[in-house]
Amino acid sequence: MKQHPILSIKDVSYRYDLRHEDYALSQISLDVKRGEWLTVLGENGSGKSTLARLIVGLAEPEFGTITFNDQTVTQANKSTFWEKVGIVFQNPDNQFIGTTVQDDVAFSLENLNLSYHEMKQRVTNALHQVGMYKLREKDPSQLSGGQKQRVAIAGVLALEPELMIFDEAFIMLDPQSRTRLLKELKLIQKNLGLTIISITHDHNETVFADRLLLLASGQIIDQGDPRTVFTRNRYVQPPFAEQFRRELVQRGISVPDNYMSNDELVEWLCK
């Protein structure tokens, strides 16, 4: 039997201002499988964050429906999903509630009815995962940009939701920390079946995705595995290896005509 998608978006349209005709999203249809890593790409203003807001019920589609585990998401019932769907917003400053880092992370767990021990365990683990355990007593408002972003990520990790949404949540992390965290998320995804929707402009992050979704002016213009999407959409910046392959082509060097991963490129250059 075919598994039901964890998230199903059907013919969704949305505009911020009902007096105007410009839709931030128009006729979006999309199923996300349980355990899938979907990366959403698109230029500034293409509708990525709007889509995330709709999925978590911060806004409601004007047309169409969004269902999570076969249950319709609305603004009114969004709290039903809060423990199942965790989101990290583009700007972490909008997200802090606690007066210390650890309180802030614990806050997201308050209504889960966990034992004190379990709660503490989860907070500690999450803070270790993002490298913020040492700073657990600090006031979140007095952290550096990257530290704030880590705390916001820890909040979602501690929640252990079924679906995690990251809206450019890694941009202020230093590259090592970013790669380490992405690898860790990949492991959780594989081992525990976590579903991930990641919004990003970072072409190197796309190597973690099972599927890419390409938005432009509020519409889905393509989707598929990274190789296919980057081959079909030449103007979207691909991972570095493919950028390099294309530059070789431009220099008139005869290179295989297909998308190349980093390993394939190194292999070919050293042949």
Partner: peptide, 13 residues
């Protein structure tokens, strides 16, 4: 400029 490229699309950056 503190991370002026962060959050911009590839072309913008």
């Amino acid at each position: 400029l503190d991370e002026p490229g962060a959050g911009l699309d590839a072309r913008g950056k």
